[in-house]
Design a protein around this nucleic acid. Structure first.
Length: 799
DNA sequence: GAGCGAAGCGCC
DNA sequence: AAAGGGCGCTTCGCTC
């Protein structure tokens, strides 16, 4: 019997019975939206009050007169009063924290929801509001969580509890940490026990161990080695700290954040949200973590583990098959990600200091000249407010709503004097970004805490999160140890990458999937012209140019020498292709190309019209004429699929043994690979359509690279711990390092082979095709003088 | 002085 | 080189 079947049989039954009338207790701001929630009360007689109600006694009186026993509310005055009754005294409380929290007051159940305006402004507003309202309107549809009981572990009880935990079905684990020194304050465990003979067959036992002694650490190691599967919430965080203390967690198989991301990737997934989403009778408790009382703190730790296992039970019971499949695809990525996060990359500290000095020098000389030019000695180009005023002074008030790069370029196009000033501002901003974000030194602190250098023992650390994006790409941010960098947006020039290097005895290598998203788009849409254009031997943009505008390919590009002959027109085709591919409108095309380029295109193509928007429309039309399946079939299929199922499912199959072990090829395509639940309305909202149209190729590419990441982890990194290091995945590339011995074993080539995964795909018209995105290794640079190949030691050398 | 949102910008 | 989409970090300027 599977775990799910077991839980299904044993699920604790809810105890409540349906009750009397209902009340919506809102605010003035909710008045306009009342019609939207009417149907959510399932026909129960519901009163509405939007006038200010400040006292619980007022509420009680109102309810008792009308036989009201359940209340849905956005009234924060009442919320604060209810919290005070629970001993949580505060002046104000945010609905965003307490949405989904349920209180009981004198026989009345009160659930709080977000302001009704969110029904229209947040794509998932209706969905969540309906769910929370059902907590009081349809309580029988909500299973009861286990009873919360917790124990502080001590020498007196720990042996006995440890023995008891050997029989657990799963164990929830959560740590609380000290940010300043990366210590672990305490660790909580919640064991789930099953007893079919019991009235409540699912039972949990929660314990907490303060981490204040070697004795405690020794016990943590024992508990972490228990045989039960572990369930965590964002477990890479906890695992990182436990690894630091040499107390690795074994058999981590479940994670409620990854499970929820696999199900509703567009929704929040912090533990507080998951509690409110899955458990009926909960009140937000994150603010309790601010306590200084260690006992209280441990209790809070225990509640988190209790919530984690209860959420886990409900996820297993309620998640549909496609979400569980997503989980199987996503969760295993935590292991290679954790390895890469704990490996990090070495920073050459000498080079860091000199690179920073170079950047600082360029910035300060530019700043000096800018200030002299405009005669404002204190001008700060980093302040958008000041730059906007400058734009107004220089006659660009009409575009001074933003001082971003696009508008500054527009302003520059108007007058050469503007160009001198605004180009300088953009230069300075560029240097500042490099210095303050990527080349930080300890001296940048200036009294502010945690604002100095980014290295951890001379290394750049980072987090790689498989649950960070809506498309299945990994997201990156600073490391769990509260330092390091987002590793996926390191600037492409040498300025920063020359300071990041392989470890002693290692070389750095990077392997890219080439034009992956274009190939994916072509194959998903099944546009045979686009497939051959993107996978052929000829220059893609020149092929487009020829097809769009009816000029001979030979006049655009010379294949023999690999040279562009008509850069201007090829450029137009490039811009049009990129824009049209993702459903850009004519207005935006004008905006992004700039008037100069639009009129350049007009003269290159001898067009008659003078309205820039008309020119852009013409350009976009040429794309859609050439590749009719993109808008004609692919966009339409996105709208239809979401309209009928609220989901987008990738009909693609990756040929790796990991997948083959789980699914047979044909059935896999029919049921789909990665599925995204879509709350947006692509039929009504163009931005939603754009994002869903972009999702499919981006997601398919992410899936391919994620499969490759797993292959590299299992087949290359793990068997060669002395000679290979897995550093990161950067959207279409994998960054690694290897030794001389690793080179003799051909490990870089094996990375490339692992990344070239054949894919079988069913296009939107039902045609099956096989294709493989080629991967290219970047292992070094040719010396410009000697022509000798230099193996990369620094990241700047893998170009 | 802390906290927060907006703006801007880095990558694929 | 850079549109559309996908992200996260720093600074500024404001509020509390």
């Amino acid at each position: 019997m599977s775990t799910t079947q077991l839980l299904n049989q044993l699920s604790n039954l809810p105890a409540q019975k349906p009750q009397n009338n209902a009340l919506f207790l809102g605010t003035w701001a909710d008045k306009d939206y009342l019609t939207h929630i009417k149907s959510m009360f399932s026909g129960v007689t519901t009163y509405t009050v939007c006038e200010p109600v400040k006292l619980l006694t007022q509420l009680e009186l109102y309810c008792s007169k009308r036989s009201i026993t359940r209340v849905v509310s956005t009234n924060t005055d009442i919320l604060v009063k209810l919290l005070a009754l629970e001993g949580n005294v505060k002046e104000s409380a945010a609905l965003s924290d307490y949405a989904g929290s349920l209180f009981t007051y004198r026989g009345i159940e009160i659930v709080f929801i977000d302001p009704l305006a969110q029904l229209l402004t947040v794509s998932y507003g209706r969905f969540i509001t309906q769910r929370y309202i059902s907590k009081v309107i349809n309580p029988l549809s909500w299973p009861e969580a286990t009873e919360f009981k917790w124990t502080l572990l001590s020498p007196e009880n720990i042996s006995e509890i440890y023995a008891q935990f050997h029989n657990a079905l799963v164990i929830g684990v959560d740590i609380e940490t000290v940010r300043e020194n990366c210590a672990i304050r305490c660790i909580g465990y919640s064991a789930v026990f099953i007893d079919r003979t019991d009235r409540t067959p699912i039972r949990t036992v929660s314990v907490v161990l303060p981490m204040d002694s070697d004795w405690a650490l020794a016990w943590v190691r024992k508990f972490n080695s228990l045989p039960a599967a572990k369930v965590l919430a964002n477990g890479k965080y906890d695992c990182s700290y436990l690894l630091r203390f040499n107390a690795p967690l074994t058999n981590w198989l479940w994670d409620v954040q990854h499970m929820f991301h696999s199900w509703y990737s567009e929704l929040p997934k912090d533990l507080a949200f998951l509690n409110a989403f899955f458990l009926r009778k909960v009140v937000y408790w994150k603010d309790l973590a601010e306590t200084n009382d260690i006992e209280q703190y441990c209790r809070y730790n225990a509640m988190d583990t209790w919530a984690t296992v209860n959420v886990w039970v409900q996820q297993l019971l309620q998640a549909p098959a496609w979400a569980k499949k997503n989980y199987v695809l996503e969760f295993p990525l935590v292991y290679p990600c954790l390895l890469a996060e704990m490996t990090g990359l070495k920073r050459d500290m000498g080079r860091l200091v000199s690179a920073r000095a170079d950047v600082d020098a360029k910035e300060s000389s530019s700043l000096q000249s800018l200030r002299a030019m405009i005669d404002v000695p204190s001008f700060n180009p980093g302040s958008h407010v000041q730059v906007k005023s400058l734009m107004k002074v220089l006659g660009c008030a009409d575009i001074a709503d933003s001082s971003g790069e696009k508008n500054l370029n527009k302003a520059s196009y108007r007058h050469p004097l503007n160009a001198r000033i605004f180009t300088k501002i953009l230069d300075i901003r560029g240097w500042r970004k490099l210095a303050t974000t990527y080349l930080r030194l300890d001296s940048d602190k200036e009294g502010k805490k945690e604002n100095g250098s980014k290295e951890f023992n001379g290394r750049i650390l980072y987090a790689l999160n498989p649950h960070g994006t809506d498309t299945g790409r990994l997201a990156s941010r600073e490391h769990h140890f509260w330092t390091g960098l987002q590793i996926q947006n390191i600037p492409r020039g040498p300025e920063v990458k020359q300071t990041i290097c392989a470890d002693d005895g290692f070389y750095l290598g990077e392997c890219d999937l080439e034009q992956a998203e274009s190939r994916d788009t072509a194959n998903i849409a099944g546009d045979t012209s686009l497939i051959s254009a993107v996978s052929g031997d000829r220059d893609f943009h020149s092929v487009n140019c020829s097809a769009f505008f009816g000029v001979p390919y030979e006049s655009i590009y010379d294949d023999a020498v690999g040279k562009t002959l008509n850069k201007g027109l090829r450029d137009v085709a490039k811009r049009v292709n990129h824009g049209a591919n993702y459903n850009m409108g004519a207005f935006t095309l004008v905006d992004t190309m700039g008037l100069e380029n639009i009129f350049k295109a007009r003269s290159l193509l001898n067009l008659k019209m003078t309205d820039p928007k008309k020119i852009a429309e013409y350009l976009l039309a040429q794309f859609h004429k050439t590749y009719p399946s993109i808008a004609g079939k692919y966009y339409v299929s996105v709208v239809n699929e979401i309209g009928t199922t609220s989901r987008l499912t990738s009909r693609a199959f990756h040929h790796t043994e990991y997948n083959l072990a789980h699914y047979s090829a044909v059935g896999y395509i029919e049921t789909g690979d990665w599925t995204r639940y879509c709350f947006g309305r692509p039929d009504k909202n163009k931005l939603d359509l754009n994002s869903y149209v972009a999702h499919c190729p981006q997601s398919l590419n992410a899936r391919t690279l994620n499969e490759a990441f797993l292959k590299v982890f299992y087949e290359i990194a793990l068997p060669n711990p002395e000679h290979f290091r897995l550093h990161a995945q950067i959207h279409d590339s994998i960054l690694f390092s290897y030794t001389e011995e690793g080179l003799r074993k051909n490990l870089p080539d094996k990375v490339r082979e692992a990344m070239e995964i054949p894919v079988t795909i069913r296009d939107v018209s039902g045609t099956y095709r096989d294709f493989t995105v080629p991967a290219a290794l970047k292992l070094g640079v040719k010396d410009k003088k000697t022509g000798e190949f230099i193996r990369a030691k620094y990241w700047s050398e893998t170009e």
